[in-house]
Each structure stands twice: as structure tokens, then as C-alpha cells.
Nucleic acid binder design. Structure first.
Length: 441
RNA sequence: GGAGAGAUGGCCGAGAGGCUGAAGGCGGCGGUUUGCUAAACCGUUAUAGGGUUGAAAAGCUCUAUCGAGGGUUCGAAUCCCUCUCUCUCCGCCA
């Protein structure tokens, strides 16, 4: 969420930034200026009346105390009441209208973010690793997984439906090894603290990180709370998390953090659940796009002046995983049209997939500025200043485990269909160096 | 699931219809004293939103906020209703 006062005084800049994202400022902002003006008028009016009422009730108290008749000011206050209720309702209405606009405006992208309408205009920042050459035709992971008997999409469809996967034997073990490897690296070498959050959150949390109210259709909602109105926030509803970003960032919702403790670095392993509404027919083969996938997430809370440096570090932390695993990748700076709703600047890491002969997103590292902090009310008290200020929040996948799993299959496949275990992962596989076909599944 | 108790400022804790944004204590900040530390003493110490003065820093003023939302009343932290959360006991359960 942007600051109301900021939008008021920088309306032209906001409009320009919205256009750069490919959004229609008129549609998003509506009659912002008018609403804002009306809101303040109504508040002023309502508060003046309240002040008047407060004076009168004080008068009543004084008269009663001295044993005098207080019926005159009492009647007057009663007469005031209808008008006051009207004004109060009107002021609250304006507040709601304005807030509805404000909560649907995406974050402003940084000036260094390239202007573009689609991923075609994303800019490649760097490339790492050499693309392996094969003496045979490399296979996509779904073929490898099926042949090895470690990936079972048919039975997953039976027990759960499309876009789910069952991992058997070494497949399940590889997933577990990756989780342990990533968490260990981030906690031991990168300074993150591991947290294990709930996999369900309430809608206030989803509002805090920006998924609600705009993106409800991308989420799975548990129907335990009856009479729920979408876009309405309550404490007792449950949604499956689409990313650990939601529970972890919201850990500090409505809190004021100690500046000395910043930056706070947290990492969390969680499953992630996404409805993938609107992506029918996209990535239907393999496990690229699933309703449930596992992810190790990196989250940071920083002072505003540190967020750019911490963004670069966080991206490097994610890249390090790929490098240790020997997976070739490239870093993309997302253009304005491809940058997420809450983000001011995003780097995507794309891993090379020889089985499909393309680069594929495996991590997304974003700096949200104060956008989420404002929505979630996460603040700190800068030294030497009386005023509290909003922190900056950042996060990135470090990494998406399912996509790392399939990247290893495709990059480390052998001519006979077996898969070599990357050296860094061998200890996490109990010393195992090869994944070979085994009957049994 | 059943029965009960509770939720007040950074923390502890009073208040039980009117001058209470809220006593007292702790903590924090500023100061006095002091060779330094400590102690003592004095002062100060919430957030948000309007209006207004100012170039700004900031000031003045009003409004709201005692878990959340509604109600009663001239007036609610205080009374009533609903909800959420926490604690205790019973039941069930990984």
C-alpha cells in the first residue's frame, strides 16, 4: 500500500508509474482527488460536531455535580445526535472508498526497473555456469522421473487430481535432501534464522503481504468459516499459504522492531499451495506448475537505507544454492509489466533445463520497500528520531525445491537414464552418488 | 465439544458510568549531583487522523483509540450483546 499523503502530493508520479506497469491510472485511481477531498471535509465536519457534543456533556457533568438542572444541554446533545451519526457514517464511507482504491494500487517500481509490458522486456543481468553438452538427446524430467520410478503423476492424479505429484524412494529422498541442504546453507553460512510457520494463515496476513484483496482467486481457501465475504478481513478464517512469505513476513505484523536487531534474516521451509486459476493448459507436463510444491524461502526486514544492499545479498544467497549444486542459471531484472503487485524491484533466477532446452524461473527475489510494511504495520524507531518509520521487507525463494529437483534430474542425467547426485548433495543423500532405476513403484 | 476466569500504555498493574489518554511502579529519554560507574533527585515519556501556523524542523488545536465490532446513555475503559484470543478444569485426540 502506498502512503495516502504521498499519493495526494505525487499524483502525477503515481499515474506515470502505473502506466509503466501497463495499468490504466484512471481505472485504478478513479476520482481519487475528489474522494480524498470529500473524505477530509466529512472528517472535519464530523469532528467539529463531536467536539461540540463533548463540550455539552462536560456541561451536563458540571451542572449535575452542583445539583443544578441539566436538561437543557442534555436535550441539545440528543438533538445533535442524528446529524452526528449521519456525518460519522458519511466520513466512514469516504474512508472505506479511499482505502479500497489505495489497497488496489500496486507498488511503484524503482526508476532503474526497465519499462516493458511482458517478460520479453526483462533484462538479463548475468549468466553463470556452462551449459552441459550431451552425447545423447537429453530427456525432460517427467520422462526421467517415470523411468526411474521416482515420480508418479498418474497416482497423484488419482488421489488428488491434476497438478499434484507423488515422489517414491530416491525421489522423495532427493526432495528431503534438497530441503536440508538449502536450510543448512542459509542458516550456517548466510546468517538466517530458521522458522517453521503455520501452513495456513488468516486473511489479515494475506492482506499484509498483498495477496488480498486483489488475488483471492489464486489461493485455496478453507471453507471452515461460514458466511465469509471475499475481500473482508476477519481473524478466524484459514487459507493455505501460497508462499512462506505470507506467514513469515506477517510474524512482525503490528509490531515495532528494535533498530539494533535489523536487518532480521529469516528462512523457512514450507509447502506452497496455488490454485493456478487461469493457467489451464500451461505447463501441463511434469512438475513445473503444481497446486502444491515445496519451497525454502528467504525473508528480510531492513532499515529503508539498507534494503538495496540486502536485496543484492539475498539474491546472491539464492544464487549460491544453484552454484553449489552446479546448476547453470541466469539472473533477470524484471521489467515494469512483469514485476509483481507488491514489489518495487524483482530479480528472477532462471535455471537451465537441458531436457526442455530453455531457462526456467526457479527463484524470485524482491524488494518491497515499505509497501508490505505499511499494509502489515511493521515499524521501527530510527535512532535520534521520535517518529516511528516503516521497515523495508524483502524476500526470495532460496529455492523452489520442486524445480530444483527437476533441474537436477535434467542436468545430471546420464545416457542410461540414471541421474548423478551433485557433490554438495551427497552427504544429504546418505552418501548415495547415483539415482538409478529400481523396480517397486 | 463442555464448564469457568481473563484481555487496560514498552512492561507490571489500578480504575467498576462524568474533569481518565488513563493513578502507581518498572523501563526508556533529558537534566542536576558525581573523578568514573552506581545511587539519589527533578523533568519527560502512546499511536493514528483532521484543522491550522511555518520554507522546513516543529508548534498549536480538535477527534479517535483501554482485545474487535455493535448496543444502552446527555455521557462508556466502566453497563448489555456478539466475536476473537489467552489461561484453568473435564472430554476427545496426533
Amino acid at each position: 500500500m502506498l502512503d495516502l499523503g504521498f499519493v495526494r502530493t505525487n499524483l502525477e508520479l503515481v499515474e506515470k508509474k502505473l502506466r509503466e506497469r501497463g495499468q490504466d491510472p484512471a481505472a485504478l485511481l478513479g476520482d481519487f482527488r475528489e474522494l480524498d477531498l470529500r473524505r477530509r471535509e466529512r472528517i472535519t465536519e464530523a469532528e467539529q460536531l463531536k467536539a461540540q457534543r463533548n463540550k455539552l456533556t462536560e456541561e451536563v457533568a458540571r451542572l449535575k455535580k452542583s445539583g443544578q438542572d441539566a436538561s437543557a444541554p442534555m436535550d441539545e446533545t440528543r438533538a445533535l445526535k442524528t446529524r452526528m451519526d449521519e456525518l460519522e457514517t458519511a466520513a466512514a464511507e469516504s474512508e472505506t472508498e479511499l482505502r479500497a482504491i489505495l489497497t488496489r494500487i500496486p507498488n511503484l517500481t524503482r526508476d532503474e526497473v526497465p519499462v516493458g509490458s511482458s517478460e520479453q522486456q526483462n533484462v538479463e543481468v548475468k549468466r553463470w555456469g556452462t551449459i552441459p553438452e550431451y552425447s545423447f538427446q537429453p530427456k525432460p524430467h517427467w520422462e526421467l522421473g517415470a523411468q526411474l520410478g521416482i515420480l508418479d503423476l498418474e497416482r497423484a492424479a488419482k488421489i488428488s487430481g491434476a497438478r499434484f505429484a507423488v515422489y517414491w524412494g530416491d525421489g522423495a529422498k532427493l526432495e528431503r535432501a534438497l530441503i536440508g541442504f538449502m536450510l543448512d546453507l542459509h542458516t550456517r553460512e548466510h546468517g538466517y534464522t530458521e522458522v517453521l510457520p503455520p501452513f495456513m494463515v488468516n486473511s489479515k496476513s494475506l492482506f499484509g503481504t498483498g495477496q488480498l484483496p486483489k488475488f483471492a482467486e489464486d489461493l485455496f481457501r478453507c471453507t471452515d468459516a461460514e458466511g465469509l465475504v471475499p475481500g473482508e478481513y476477519r481473524d478466524n478464517d484459514h487459507w493455505l499459504i501460497p508462499t512462506a512469505e505470507v506467514p513469515v513476513t506477517n510474524l512482525y505484523r503490528d509490531e515495532t522492531l528494535d533498530e539494533a536487531k535489523l536487518p532480521i534474516l529469516l528462512t523457512a521451509y514450507t509447502p506452497c499451495f496455488r490454485s493456478e486459476a487461469g493457467s489451464y493448459g500451461k505447463d501441463v507436463r511434469g512438475i513445473i506448475r503444481q497446486h502444491q510444491f515445496q519451497k525454502v524461502e528467504l525473508v528480510k526486514f531492513t532499515r529503508p537505507e539498507d534494503s538495496d544492499v540486502e536485496h543484492e545479498k539475498l539474491t546472491r544467497n539464492a544464487e549460491t544454492i544453484l552454484e553449489r549444486l552446479g546448476l547453470p542459471y541466469r539472473r533477470m531484472l524484471l521489467c515494469t509489466g512483469d514485476t509483481g503487485f507488491s514489489s518495487a524491484k524483482t530479480f528472477d533466477l532462471e535455471v537451465w533445463l537441458p531436457g526442455q532446452n530453455l531457462y526456467r524461473e526457479i527463484s524470485s527475489c524482491s524488494n518491497f520497500d515499505a509497501f508490505q510494511a505499511r499494509r502489515a504495520n511493521i515499524r521501527y524507531k530510527p535512532k535520534g528520531q521520535g517518529k516511528t518509520a516503516f521497515v523495508h521487507t524483502l524476500n526470495g525463494s532460496g529455492l523452489a525445491v520442486g524445480r530444483t529437483w527437476l533441474a537436477i534430474l535434467e542436468n545430471y542425467q546420464q545416457a542410461d537414464g540414471s541421474v548423478r547426485v551433485p557433490d554438495a548433495l551427497v552427504p544429504y543423500m546418505g552418501g548415495q552418488r547415483m539415482i538409478e532405476s529400481r523396480a517397486g513403484a
